[in-house]
C-alpha cells in the first residue's frame, strides 16, 4: 500500500543532483553520496545478476519481496541501502537563501568541530531557522504539532534519535496508514490512503521502513526452532517432555500468540516515509570530522525541504460521526 505513494526515481536523476551548498562540499558529496550510490548499485547488480525475474524489478519491489528471506538477504540489503540513501537526500535543499552566491562549493564550516565542542553548553534557544510554517506548509506544521505536541519536541526527538545511532542507520519521519475494517465494505473507500498519526523511528544498517512485520519472521523461526529441539530431545531421550526454551521464549509467546494483535498491528497498517536522515559517518565524516555529528544534524535540519516532505503526506484520516 505504501508503495503506491513512492514514485520510483531513476538513478540518472540522482547522479545529476548537485551537492547541497551549506551542508556538504563537492568533495564530501562525491565521497558520501555518489561513491556510495555507485558501490551499492554495483553490489546490488552483482547479487541479482542472472536472475531475470529480479533484474526487472524496482528497488522498492526488491526490498519488500526479498526482505523477509534470509537467502536473499544480500539483495534486500543493498536495495534497501540504495533506497534509504536516495530517499534521505531527496528532501534536502540549499540552505543559502541567497541563491546567487551558491556556486557549487558553498561556504561550509570554517573549521571542523574539535574535541571542545563536546563540552559546549547546549543551545537552548527555541527559534529555528527552518520550520514548515515559514514556507506556508501549514498542513505539515499542523500534522507535526498534533502528533508530537510541538515543533520543539519534534525537532528534539528527530535529531536526538539520529544522534543515538552509534553505527550506520537512518532516522525516519513516517505517517501511519491505517485501514479500518469498515472501509473495506465500501469499494470506493478501499483505494483511499489516509494516515492517522506521524511517528519518528530509527532503522539500523540496511533496515527498511517497509519491513515492519519482522515479528512474523521471528515467530516462524521460533516454531521451527522448537520443532528441531523437540526432535533432538526425542532422539536423545524418548521419556523427556519437551519443555524446551520455555522461560526464554515466553516473552514472544505472550505477545505473538494472539492472532488478533497481529492483525491489528500489522496486516492493515503500513508506514509511508516522509523524511529520512542518514546517520552514517560515510555521509558527514569528510566535511564535519570526528566531532561533528551534532553540527551536521543542526545543518540537516536547516536543509530540510518541507515542500517535498509535505507533498508526501497522505490525506488525514478523521472519524466522522454523521
Amino acid at each position: 500500500m505504501a508503495l503506491n505513494l513512492i514514485t520510483t526515481r531513476s538513478l540518472e536523476r540522482l547522479f545529476n543532483k548537485k551537492p547541497i551548498p551549506g551542508l556538504v562540499s563537492v568533495e564530501g558529496w562525491q565521497r558520501g553520496c555518489i561513491d556510495r550510490i555507485n558501490y551499492y548499485s554495483k553490489m546490488l547488480n552483482e547479487s541479482i545478476k542472472g536472475n531475470e525475474l529480479l533484474e526487472n524489478k524496482s528497488v522498492e519491489e526488491l526490498i519488500t519481496e526479498c526482505g523477509m528471506s534470509p537467502s536473499k538477504r544480500n539483495i534486500a540489503n543493498y536495495a534497501s541501502l540504495l533506497y534509504n540513501l536516495e530517499f534521505s537526500i531527496s528532501s534536502l535543499k540549499d540552505t543559502n537563501n541567497d541563491s546567487s552566491t551558491s556556486n557549487g562549493d558553498a561556504p561550509l564550516l570554517k573549521e571542523k568541530p574539535t574535541k571542545f565542542s563536546l563540552l559546549e553548553t547546549p543551545d537552548l534557544s527555541l527559534d529555528f531557522n527552518n520550520e514548515p510554517r515559514f514556507t506556508a506548509h501549514t498542513l505539515l506544521q499542523n500534522a507535526i504539532e498534533s502528533s508530537f505536541s510541538s515543533m520543539v519536541q519534534f525537532r528534539t526527538l528527530l535529531l536526538n534519535s539520529n544522534m543515538a545511532i552509534s553505527g550506520d542507520g537512518f532516522t525516519w519521519l513516517v505517517a501511519r496508514i491505517y485501514k479500518p475494517k469498515i472501509q473495506t465494505m465500501n469499494n470506493q473507500m478501499v483505494d483511499d490512503i489516509k494516515y492517522d498519526k506521524l511517528f519518528v523511528f530509527n532503522t539500523y544498517n540496511a533496515g527498511s521502513p517497509f519491513i515492519m512485520n519482522k515479528s512474523n519472521l521471528i515467530n516462524n523461526l521460533e516454531k521451527e526452532y522448537k520443532r528441531l529441539e523437540k526432535e533432538k530431545t526425542q532422539n536423545n531421550d524418548s521419556n523427556s517432555q519437551s519443555n524446551v526454551s520455555k522461560s526464554a521464549s515466553s516473552y514472544y509467546n505472550e505477545i505473538l500468540s494472539s492472532e488478533e494483535i497481529k492483525k491489528i498491528a500489522f496486516n492493515d497498517t503500513t508506514y509511508a516515509p516522509l523524511l529520512a536522515i542518514d546517520a552514517s559517518p560515510k555521509f558527514w565524516l569528510y566535511d564535519y570530522g570526528v566531532f561533528g555529528k551534532k553540527e551536521y544534524l543542526n545543518r540537516i535540519w536547516d536543509s530540510i525541504d518541507w515542500s517535498i516532505v509535505e507533498s508526501r503526506l497522505p490525506q488525514k484520516y478523521e472519524l466522522k460521526y454523521d
Partner: peptide, 12 residues
C-alpha cells in the same frame, strides 16, 4: 545483524 532477515541457524 538483526536488521536483515535471519536464518534458522542464526536464530538457534
Amino acid at each position: 545483524d538483526m536488521n536483515s532477515a535471519i536464518n534458522i541457524d542464526e536464530f538457534s
